[in-house]
């Protein structure tokens, strides 16, 4: 446990040791703001809630979360430090979990910096802050899913660009499976069973439910399982690469 936190702390510090963290946070906030206010018609809707923000969030995450995870393992492999890390007296799961937690904490920091929006809607009206809180929890869980996928993809290669592209592709697949457009499009091509299975592993439907304030245990278990599965895959990939 302690070793895991030591790993996590170093990883988190590594984000802020370079301008990457600041560039990421600024771009994230600017894009999210722009989407929410202009595309999302934040003011014209006349409603005191953050629905437009949380509606755009998955798509922004889709592009930006892989940028957080791409260096996690790929950079270690490229610079050779993975050899150092894996010959230190820690279990593999401690390294995998430590890196993931650092990335998750970083994503949570970026998300937390959207707090002026919460203040804004509270000044302009009387929003249901319970729903907003639930939506933030949903966003954190969604970020966790994307991060877990991204971390596993990063373990596959020593090239950060490849890690990024693979992660975007994988996250995209797990996001769009549930969206009505894709379901309608695929309904003719795929048998109902496959479609149903695809809908079940999709993230967006469950995320939408949570952002509307519907927090079901089933969905929480799903997110936890999803993250767990990808972290396990991450460990398997690292172990498999050790076999050369």
């Amino acid at each position: 446990m302690r070793s895991m936190l030591v790993i996590a702390r170093r990883e988190l510090a590594a984000y802020f040791a370079t301008p990457v963290a600041y560039v990421f946070i600024v771009i994230f906030l600017v894009l999210l703001g722009a989407l929410t206010f202009s595309v999302g018609n934040f003011f014209d809707r006349g409603q005191a809630d953050l629905a437009p923000l949380f509606a755009f969030l998955p798509w922004l995450f889709l592009l930006l979360i892989p940028a957080i995870t791409m260096r996690l393992w790929a950079e270690e492999r490229r610079s050779g430090t993975i050899e150092l890390l894996l010959t230190l007296p820690i279990a593999l799961w401690q390294a995998v979990l430590g890196k993931f937690l650092a990335a998750w904490a970083f994503a949570a920091i970026a998300l937390a910096l959207t707090f002026p929006m919460v203040i804004t809607v509270n000044v302009l009206g009387t929003p249901d802050n319970g729903v907003i809180l639930a939506a933030y929890a949903g966003a954190v869980l969604l970020a966790g899913c994307y991060l877990a996928i991204g971390a596993a993809m990063s373990a596959l290669t020593k090239n950060q660009v490849i890690a990024f592209v693979l992660a975007v592709a994988a996250c995209f697949v797990f996001t769009v499976f549930g969206s009505p457009v894709v379901v309608g499009f695929l309904a003719e091509a795929l048998p109902a069973g496959v479609l149903e299975a695809a809908r079940r592993v999709s993230l967006i439907g469950r995320y939408d439910a949570i952002t509307r304030g519907v927090v079901a245990l089933r969905d929480l278990v799903f997110f936890a399982t999803f993250i767990g599965f990808w972290l396990y895959a991450n460990a398997v990939i690292v172990e498999w690469k050790k076999a050369g």
Binding site: S3, V6, R10, S79, G80, T81, E83, L84, T87, L88
Partner: peptide, 29 residues
């Protein structure tokens, strides 16, 4: 790994850390 001190090929270290922070991290791990 506990009884082993290992200098890998090319002596890889984390370039963004200071010498002091790096060694302190190794000691913590």
């Amino acid at each position: 790994k506990r009884v082993l001190g290992y200098l890998p090929e090319g002596a890889p270290t984390y370039p963004d850390m200071t010498v002091s922070a790096f060694l302190d991290w190794i000691a913590a791990v």
